[in-house]
Structure formats: structure tokens, C-alpha cells
């Protein structure tokens, strides 16, 4: 069986004829969205394989540089998802995430990154269906948007 690993250098150039398959990184909190993702899995809710989860304890620990690192490292988009406002396991970490993501979304377009490539959602622990729907709709949006071309970005 032949395996083809496309190195980061070759990114952004989809093989001729192949449909664009985005790589989407999702920073999700352990208590709500990661649990919802588990529930979606246990309930066999088919999801786009493009979204890969990074388990964080809280969205409040998602440093904006993690998001930037993901985008520069080859992710076409980043999803950040945590507990609903008021339901944070750590009292108010999600509010902090909300503020940071808001600022990041204002700054990134100035460097040539479409703010639609970042999405912040709240998916509670029991909302497996909501998680699957979020993953599928976000993957579809990014497929529409096309690959990120970090090499042409002015900051590089």
C-alpha cells in the first residue's frame, strides 16, 4: 500500500482533479465540546473528516498564538469551541476566549487572513448533534472558501 505524505512545503497546491480537502484544527474544551464530540461519536453522527480536535482544558487557555500557529502551519481554518456562556467549568474562561477571538478576528484580515477562517462556537456536553452539525457546516464553508495561501501573506 502506497502512502503519500504531502509535506508542508507542497501545501496549498491541490493535486490536479482532486477536490480541495481542508485541514481544520479545532481547539475544544475538555468539559463541553470535547464531551459533545465523544457523544456525537457514540451516537455515530457522521462528520466531515477535515476537522481534527486539540483537547484543551478550557477555551480560556487558547492563546491567540496557537490559532495563528495553526493557520501558518497549514491549517485552512480554526474552530474554537467551549461551554455556553455562563456554563464554563472554570467560571468564566469562555468569556476570555470570546474577547480574544473577537480581537484576533479584527487583526487577522489586515495580514491577509480571511476572518471567516476562524470560528468560535459554544457546544455543550450534551449537544452531540450540535457538534456534528457545527463540524459539517464549518467544513463546507471552508471548502467553499478554498485553501489558505500562507506563502502569499504579507507577514511571511
Amino acid at each position: 500500500m502506497q502512502e503519500l505524505i504531502v509535506t508542508p512545503e507542497a501545501q496549498g497546491e491541490p493535486m490536479p482533479g482532486a477536490a480541495f480537502e481542508p485541514a481544520i484544527v479545532a481547539f475544544v474544551c475538555n468539559w463541553c465540546t470535547y464531551t459533545a464530540a465523544d457523544l456525537a461519536g457514540t451516537s455515530r453522527m457522521v462528520q466531515s473528516p477535515n476537522v481534527r480536535l486539540v483537547r484543551m482544558m478550557c477555551t480560556g487557555m487558547v492563546d491567540p498564538k496557537y490559532i495563528i500557529k495553526a493557520l501558518l502551519g497549514g491549517a485552512d481554518a480554526v474552530l474554537i469551541s467551549g461551554c455556553h456562556p455562563g456554563d464554563c467549568h472554570y467560571i468564566n474562561g469562555n468569556y476570555k476566549a470570546r474577547r480574544r477571538v473577537k480581537l484576533l478576528m479584527e487583526i487577522l484580515p489586515r495580514f491577509g487572513i480571511d476572518s471567516r477562517r476562524i470560528k468560535l462556537t459554544w457546544v455543550g456536553a450534551s449537544e452531540g448533534n450540535e457538534f456534528a452539525a457545527t463540524v459539517n457546516s464549518f467544513a463546507a464553508e471552508i471548502k467553499e472558501l478554498g485553501p489558505i495561501d500562507t506563502r502569499r501573506l504579507p507577514l511571511l
Binding site: E3, L4, I5, V6, P8, Q11, M15, E21, A23, V25, R52, V54, Y66, K69, A70, G73, G74, A75
Partner: peptide, 10 residues
């Protein structure tokens, strides 16, 4: 983790 995650495996 991000470095591993953003590798594209066709």
C-alpha cells in the same frame, strides 16, 4: 501537537 495535526495525509 499542531505540527502533527496539520500534516496532510492523502
Amino acid at each position: 501537537e499542531l505540527e502533527g495535526l496539520t500534516q496532510r495525509i492523502v
